[in-house]
Nucleic acid binder design. Structure first.
Lengths: 142, 142
DNA sequence: CCCTTTACTTATCGATTGATAAGTAAAAAG
DNA sequence: CTTTTTACTTATCAATCGATAAGTAAAGGG
């Protein structure tokens, strides 16, 4: 297998990942928030505490737009901003209790779909999948 | 490792995939098209020929919106619709020569970034990555 | 042959989004 | 101690997008 064929496989793979995650996000997200806001909450949930700049970088949104969306999420009481005492320009952003509840609910529902999809897998298979995720994250999607 | 930990890893993984692919799409896509249109072209490139319904399903867009975006892409002469002789309600959608050229250019640039990222890998590592992609596609992202 | 379903189109409308300009306040650099 | 840079905010505006209603034309089923 040459490098070009591997690359084609990589592209097709990313298309599949997008298809599946978008499907899950659609099923799972509350109607109180938009898809963009859901993705921001998901990122915060996975990486908290985060700064606004980090969200902006990771989501590839401009700072003004990130700030606006975060304001909306704060107004909906789904996340909180805590000033950094070391550097008062910065703020650490975390999910609020309500945000945690919403995301836990969403994650549980995705997890149910994930479990259903992965099926009754053996511990060996689980390890295999885990190793594959680790490998790709380390070498490709870092 | 329990199933929940694997699930968390899965979520973090999908966030990474999104981050990387969005970054690449931003770098690579022509300003003549929107991000949504770029993703549609990418899907067509990987799966052609496709029907409008398939694009609609895979991209999780409604048929009217898919039809509209496809019309825009046709007007830009980036894709073509060919009626199916078996079932004249259907149409097969393909990239036009211009669309192929645009996507080949985009893919080449992504491939360069991919190669840079994967680095000078050994054939063994390449096989490992390939197997990981295959495994995850078969068991998780199908 | 009619009725229903499938595949797709056209049109409309409000909400979300992205881009940009301009500003604040704190930290770091000179 | 002034200047610059960093981190973030506020405001504005057009473009895009998602959702919905209504329609066409071909295929399939009874």
């Amino acid at each position: 297998m040459d490098s070009n064929a591997l690359f084609r496989k990589f592209v097709a793979f990313t298309v599949s990942v997008h298809e599946m995650t978008n499907e899950m996000a659609k099923e799972v997200r509350s109607e109180a928030i938009t898809l963009v806001q859901y993705k921001i909450l998901q990122y915060i949930a996975v990486s908290q505490p985060v700064t606004l700049s980090e969200i902006s970088d990771c989501m590839h949104m401009s700072m003004p737009n990130t700030s606006r969306e975060l304001k909306k999420l704060s107004e909906k009481q789904l996340c909180e901003k805590v000033a950094d005492n070391e550097d008062r320009r910065k703020q650490f952003i975390r999910l609020s209790a309500k945000g945690e509840a919403m995301m836990n609910d969403a994650f549980q529902r995705i997890e149910a779909r994930f479990a259903e999809r992965v099926g009754a897998i053996s511990p060996d298979e689980m390890k295999e999948i885990e190793r594959a995720l680790d490998l790709l994250r380390a070498k490709v999607f870092y």
